[in-house]
Design a protein around this nucleic acid. Structure first.
Lengths: 242, 242
DNA sequence: CGCAGGTGAAACACTCGGTTACCAAAATCT
DNA sequence: AGATTTTGGTAACCGAGTGTTTCACCTGCG
C-alpha cells in the first residue's frame, strides 16, 4: 500500500485528495506547508509526494530541490494553470511529473500510477543505450559506503561487509535520517514498515547486531548512539554521492 | 477477416469502435476490463488488440506486458491526451503503436492497417518471452554478455555458458530489471508468464541453479542477492549494447 | 541504599530461503 | 514408436535470519 504525502495550503484540496486517493487504495498523509511536509517526510516512509508550487513560506520548487538533495522519492508538482515556467523549472528541480490546476482526479491517479511504476514497480525495463542508474544512490559516512541499488555495504577499508536484509534496511533508515533521534517506533516503520507490538525489542536486537559488525568497540558505540528513553541516533554525517 | 479486440471501460467508445471497424471489414470483439479481455484473448484467435491504458482494476500497461509474456499479438495502446509517460512506458512494454485520446477514427484505421501489415507478413514467428522491438539486443553486465537474439550467455572469459530455457528467461527478467527488488510473483510473471501457486518454490530453485552457474561463490552471491521477505535483486548495472 | 524502568546481550523458537533428491513432462535420439 | 536425456517443479531437510524471552546491569530517583 503506497504512502502518498499531499502538500497543499488549501484545506479543501487536502481533504479532497486524502479522501479520493484513500478510496483508491493509497495511504495518504497531508501537510499544509513546507515545515510540516519535511517533518512528515523525515518521520515516515513516503513513497510519493504531491507538491503544490504555491505555498506559504518556502515554495514548492525549493522544497522539491531539498527533497531531491537527499532522496529519490518521486514528486508530482501541482502548478497554476498554464504556468509553463513553473512546469519547466519544476522538472529541472527533479520533479517526476507535473499537473496544472484545476486537474482531473482520474488524470492525477493515472500519473501517480505511472510515476510509481517507473520508480519501483515491476515494469519499466531498461531502455536501449542507457546505463541503468535508477535510484542508484550511495550514502557515504565515516568512510563507509552504503550502495542502495546494489544493497551492499563497503567498509572504510573497501571490503564488502555482509549484512542481512534486516540489518541493511535498518542501516538505510539510519543513514537517511542522520543526526536525529529516532524512536523505536519510527525505526520499525522505516525499516520494516510495521508498527510496534507491546514489549517489542526487535529494533534493540538489530541495533546490537549492526554494532557488532560496524563499531570498532561495540561496547562504546560511535556510529549508532543510544538515547536513553528516546531511541537511537545515527551520529555520522552522511553524504549522498550519486 | 482480421479479428480485433477492443478493450475500453467506456461503453460509448466500445460501441463506436465496434460499429466503425465492423463497417470497414473487421471482426470486432469488445471487453470492458482486463479480466474480460484475457478471457476473450485466450478463447478466440485475436489478430490485434486495441487497449486503453486507463482501466478499472489492472491497468493497460500491465495487461500489455502480460499479453507480451506469452504472445506477439499486435497491440495498439490508447493513452490519455498528451501523456508522454504512458506512451513511452507503453512502447517499452511491447505495444506496437499508440494513439492519444481523443483520436480520429480514420487515423486509427490507418494505424491498424500498418500494424497488421508489419505483423502479419509471412507467418509472424514468435518465441515466448521475446520482446517484439528488441530484436538483436545484447545485455552486458560485469563482463557477462547476454545475447537475447541468439539466447546465449557468454562468461567474462568469453566462453559460452550453457543455460536451460527457463534459466535463460529468468536471467533475462533479472537483467531487464536490474537493481530492483523483484518479488517471486513478479519474476514468475516476467520469466514464465504465470502466477504463483501457494508454496511455489520454483523461482528459488531456478535462482539457485543460476547462481551455481554464474556466481564465483554461490554461498555468497554477488550478482543475484536475496532480500529476505522481499524477493531477489539483480545487483549489477546493465548496459544495452545493440 | 533499594527500587523501577530502560537497555544490552545471550539463548531460544520460529520462519524463511538454499539445496538436494526425486519425479513427471518434454525434448531428443534411435 | 520406444528409449534416453534434459528440464522444470515438488517435497524435504537444514541452516541462516529474525523476533521473543529472559536476565543482568545500569541509571536515576526517592
Amino acid at each position: 500500500m503506497p504512502h502518498i504525502l499531499v502538500v497543499d495550503d488549501d484545506r479543501e484540496i487536502r481533504t479532497l485528495l486524502t479522501r479520493f486517493l484513500g478510496g483508491h487504495g493509497y495511504r495518504v498523509s497531508a501537510a499544509k506547508d513546507g515545515a510540516e511536509m519535511m517533518r512528515m517526510f523525515e518521520a515516515g516512509r513516503i513513497d510519493l509526494i504531491i507538491l503544490d508550487v504555491m505555498l506559504p513560506g518556502e515554495d514548492g520548487l525549493n522544497l522539491c530541490r531539498r527533497v531531491r538533495a537527499g532522496s529519490a522519492t518521486p514528486i508530482i508538482m501541482l502548478t497554476a494553470v498554464g504556468d509553463e515556467t513553473d512546469r519547466i523549472v519544476g522538472l529541472e528541480m527533479g520533479a517526476d511529473d507535473y499537473l496544472s490546476k484545476p486537474f482531473n482526479p482520474r488524470e492525477l491517479l493515472a500519473r501517480i500510477k505511472a510515476v510509481l511504476r517507473r520508480a519501483g514497480g515491476p515494469g519499466a525495463p531498461v531502455s536501449a543505450g542507457e546505463t541503468t542508474s535508477g535510484g542508484g544512490r550511495i550514502l557515504a559516512f565515516e568512510g563507509w559506503r552504503l550502495d542502495l541499488a546494489r544493497r551492499e555495504l563497503h567498509s572504510p577499508e573497501g571490503v564488502l561487509t555482509q549484512l542481512s536484509a534486516g540489518e541493511f534496511d535498518l542501516l538505510v533508515a539510519f543513514a537517511e535520517h542522520p543526526q536525529r533521534v529516532l524512536t523505536r517506533d519510527q525505526l520499525l516503520d522505516l525499516a520494516r514498515g510495521r508498527v510496534a507490538a507491546p514489549f517489542d525489542r526487535s529494533i534493540d536486537v538489530q541495533v546490537s547486531r549492526l554494532r557488532r559488525k560496524m563499531e570498532a568497540d561495540p561496547a562504546e558505540p560511535v556510529l549508532i548512539k543510544t538515547v536513553r528513553g528516546g531511541g537511537y541516533l545515527f551520529s555520522a554525517s552522511v553524504k549522498v554521492e550519486k
